[in-house]
Amino acid sequence: MTEKIMLTLNANKIYGLLNKHSQGSMNYQTLRDLTGIEKAGFTGYLTELRKKGLVTTTGPHCSKTIHVAMRPKDLDIEISQKSIKRASAYGKPRDDRYAGQEKKRGCLKCKKSFTSKWPGERICKVCKTSRAWTNDSPYTPSGDGDGFGVSDLVTGVI
């Protein structure tokens, strides 16, 4: 009797590549490079496979090896249309996502009007390139020997 398992498209891609490999195991970095999936997304799909008991991992994160735990002959794999939300979806959107939706907004720092390319852009380019914004401020506390903008007196490292 075969077990029915629902996988996202990319998780199935990873699982398929592992099964095609003669040893049934592969280095994390090599597998990620072969799939072409970005790092944050790859980790999510790998977690999906681990939770379903299809793969196991050994070794520390950077030199992790992924092993097949269940062979596909024992499984009925169905591809889900639902996908895992990419970590990059939470950051600045791709250029084409808001094409043609530029809007005049007031900068939250200097209050001047500028053309915003996407809804989350609220600081103008002039302010973003200023010394205060880039943390190259003359107001960095004295005693900042490590260049992180925090006084060694605050961190307790002297």
Rank of each mutant, 00 (worst) to 15 (best):
K125S: 15
L49E: 03
R122S: 02
E121L: 08
V154E: 04
T30N: 05
K39Q: 06
L18G: 01
T140F: 14
N12Y: 13
A89V: 04
E121Q: 14
A132N: 08
L17A: 00
R105D: 02
T56H: 12
T129S: 12
D74M: 09
I37W: 14
C62A: 06
K52M: 04
P93C: 01
Y15V: 01
W118R: 08
S130K: 10
G53P: 08
N10M: 04
C127F: 04
E3T: 05
C62N: 08
S80I: 00
K125P: 01
G156F: 06
S88E: 04
S63C: 11
P72S: 06
A11E: 00
I158K: 12
L34F: 12
L31Y: 09
T43P: 01
C62S: 11
K64P: 00
G41L: 06
D74Y: 04
E48G: 06
T2F: 11
D33R: 14
L18S: 02
C124E: 00
G120D: 01
D152H: 14
V55L: 05
G44Q: 13
L153F: 14
K13E: 14
S80Y: 04
S151D: 00
A132W: 15
R94C: 05
P138F: 12
T134W: 10
R86I: 07
G106Y: 11
Y139T: 02
Y15C: 01
E3H: 10
G59V: 01
S22G: 08
D76R: 12
L49S: 03
T56Q: 12
K109E: 04
D33E: 13
H21A: 08
M6I: 01
L18T: 01
L31F: 15
C62L: 10
P93V: 00
L31D: 02
V55Q: 03
G100A: 11
T140P: 09
K111D: 01
V154C: 08
L31G: 07
P138Y: 05
K109L: 02
Y139A: 04
D144E: 05
I77Y: 11
K20M: 15
E121M: 09
K103Y: 06
Y28F: 12
K125A: 14
N135L: 14
T140G: 09
I5W: 12
I77L: 04
